[in-house]
């Protein structure tokens, strides 16, 4: 029963909604998301936010693990370059993400699943539009196929 439900949920087509994990830095992007919320801006409810102190704190393994465990999309956002609360965290992170995306692309994960961007605390509008853009792109790609055709663990994580 459980198994059937799971399969149903993961099939593309009418009614399928992607699950997107968003890693946001505490100081800019999380506050930006907050502003979008308090301003009553509408954006798709597909993202699950994980708040971190800084985009420099986002271990690439978080993203790898989320994708392998079945997330359909990833969104990462931090302070604009130059605005980092810790001065340089996002600048190191920028190089890291650039490499990570290239790595994931080589391994066969569609570039449209993994998104990096900068959103400041005052950019509630930008946050909403970025989420919209990400959701449209991930929806177009359909469910995450990284483990398709391979043996699977009995349990798939629910986000």
């Amino acid at each position: 029963m459980k198994e059937e439900m799971m399969v149903e949920k993961r099939e593309a087509g009418a009614g399928w909604e992607p699950k997107i994990v968003a890693f946001l830095c505490n100081w800019c992007s999380y506050a930006g998301a907050d502003l979008a919320g308090t301003s009553r801006l509408q954006y798709p409810p597909n993202i699950r936010i994980v708040r971190l102190p800084c985009s420099g704190r986002i271990n690439p393994l978080y993203i790898i693990k989320a994708l392998v465990d079945g997330a359909d999309g990833i969104m990462v956002s931090g302070c604009h370059p130059g605005d980092c609360h810790y001065l340089t965290g996002n600048l190191y992170a920028r190089r890291r993400f650039t490499m990570l995306k290239r790595l994931l692309t080589t391994a066969g994960i569609e570039p449209g699943r993994v998104h990096f961007t900068w959103v400041s605390a005052s950019e509630g509008n930008r946050f909403a539009s970025v989420v919209e853009e990400v959701v449209v792109k991930v929806k177009a790609l359909g469910p995450n196929r990284i483990r398709e055709g391979s043996e699977r663990r009995s349990d798939v994580h629910e986000f």
Binding site: Y92, R94, K101, P111, V114, H115, F116, T117, W118
Partner: peptide
Amino acid sequence: MTTFDMNDKEVGFIGGEHNEAC
């Protein structure tokens, strides 16, 4: 990977430059 440049290219970022390179 242990350093950075203020003007690093943002390959593959939303609104970044040189997306096609990635």
